[in-house]
Computed example of a mutant assay.
Amino acid sequence: MKNKILVTGGAGYIGSHTCIALHEAGYDIVVYDNLSNSSREAIDRLSILIGQTVEFIEGDIRDSELLREVFASHKFFGVIHFAGLKAVGESVAKPLLYYNNNVSGTITLLEVMAEYNIKNIVFSSSATVYGDPESLPIDESSKRSCTNPYGQSKLTVEHILEDLAVSDDSWNLIALRYFNPVGAHPSGQIGEDPNDIPNNLMPYISQVAVGKLDKLSIFGNDYPTVDGTGVRDFIHVTDLAQGHVSALNYLNKQTRPNEGGTAKKNSVGFLPINLGTGKGTSVLELVSAFSDISGQSIPYQFAERRAGDIASCYASADKAKTLLGWQAELSIADMCRNTWRWQSMNPNGYNVS
């Protein structure tokens, strides 16, 4: 029998790509999403891509009664938890909204999981928990600190997961710390579709390339980097999706038959793992690569540094390779090519009307 996974936030950018990877790896999926920053169209396209109707439940992770109904009617192996708000600027303006959704919502989810004795979870964390790194590359033992409420909400959830693991050793809690997800599915059918003006660099570049936005603002050109612009670890979203499959596979392998033939469980506890390429790319390098791939000029202007931005940030992904057998495979050119295919095929994102 296939293992069934609840994917909270599964209609979103990373969630939808992970649903494809899960299906291809033989998992059954149930998507739970309130569509606050995603689209029903993504679910429809996801169903076409995997060749079967995706079971979709429109709901909020703060809705404990609906969650109970979902857990009562399915036998889940575990949960991949993407559901959460993710715009740094908005989190500064509306911190209570972020703590209510990202922290309180996760507590509600964990409480319902405990009621139904489902204790395997892969949490969508973030490299923002590292703040301004003291040294590079960043590994999982690096000091954690945050410069905004979004990052703080992720770090708070990590602390909750750590405390939960200490209180009850039957929990298996993997926190995947993403670096900078970009790219789209090679089909061009699903991709990143931000509300209003994009907060992230790649969708902003692609919307300039397609003519939707006039020019790119690059915040800071005086950092101590290769060309003065910020350096980040960009990872293709389909590589990231495979990282979640590898994490679930790892949890699966913790149950092995012992000599008597019964299952013996090795508790994972709280396990943080970076997902990145281990390589840094500057903003100008990414702009140049995208222009080369798309054949479009990307007008840009330099602007003042933004508060809280850091010069460089890239991962040590050794732990993911050692423990999960996972490493990023796709290049910056792949990321740009797939993003351009998605953007040019869907200039208005999922808004097809």
Rank of each mutant, 00 (worst) to 15 (best):
residue 132 D to R: 10
residue 299 P to Q: 06
residue 78 G to A: 01
residue 119 K to W: 11
residue 76 F to T: 06
residue 195 N to D: 05
residue 162 E to C: 06
residue 282 S to Q: 10
residue 218 I to Y: 07
residue 46 L to Q: 07
residue 180 N to E: 05
residue 220 G to C: 04
residue 288 S to D: 15
residue 274 N to R: 01
residue 85 L to E: 12
residue 220 G to Q: 04
residue 201 L to R: 08
residue 291 S to M: 09
residue 248 L to F: 10
residue 9 G to Q: 04
residue 85 L to K: 12
residue 105 G to N: 11
residue 320 A to S: 15
residue 309 D to Y: 01
residue 246 S to M: 02
residue 98 Y to C: 08
residue 276 G to I: 06
residue 126 S to E: 09
residue 6 L to D: 14
residue 135 S to Q: 12
residue 172 N to G: 03
residue 58 E to N: 08
residue 339 T to G: 08
residue 37 N to W: 01
residue 347 P to E: 09
residue 220 G to Y: 00
residue 312 S to V: 00
residue 198 P to S: 09
residue 299 P to Y: 06
residue 244 H to E: 06
residue 343 Q to T: 14
residue 40 R to F: 13
residue 140 E to Y: 07
residue 158 E to Y: 14
residue 200 N to D: 11
residue 246 S to A: 15
residue 278 G to H: 08
residue 109 L to I: 07
residue 138 I to N: 05
residue 133 P to W: 03
residue 140 E to H: 05
residue 146 C to R: 03
residue 46 L to D: 10
residue 222 D to A: 06
residue 25 A to D: 03
residue 3 N to A: 08
residue 353 S to D: 12
residue 154 K to G: 06
residue 224 P to G: 05
residue 59 G to F: 01
residue 312 S to A: 15
residue 219 F to W: 12
residue 312 S to I: 00
residue 295 G to C: 11
residue 209 A to D: 03
residue 205 I to M: 10
residue 101 N to Y: 04
residue 338 N to K: 04
residue 308 G to M: 04
residue 190 I to S: 10
residue 350 Y to D: 02
residue 307 A to K: 15
residue 277 T to F: 08
residue 59 G to I: 00
residue 305 R to F: 00
residue 175 A to I: 02
residue 157 V to K: 07
residue 35 L to S: 02
residue 331 S to P: 02
residue 142 S to N: 06
residue 328 A to G: 13
residue 291 S to D: 10
residue 210 V to H: 06
residue 97 L to F: 01
residue 84 G to W: 04
residue 348 N to E: 13
residue 227 D to N: 03
residue 259 E to S: 13
residue 256 R to V: 15
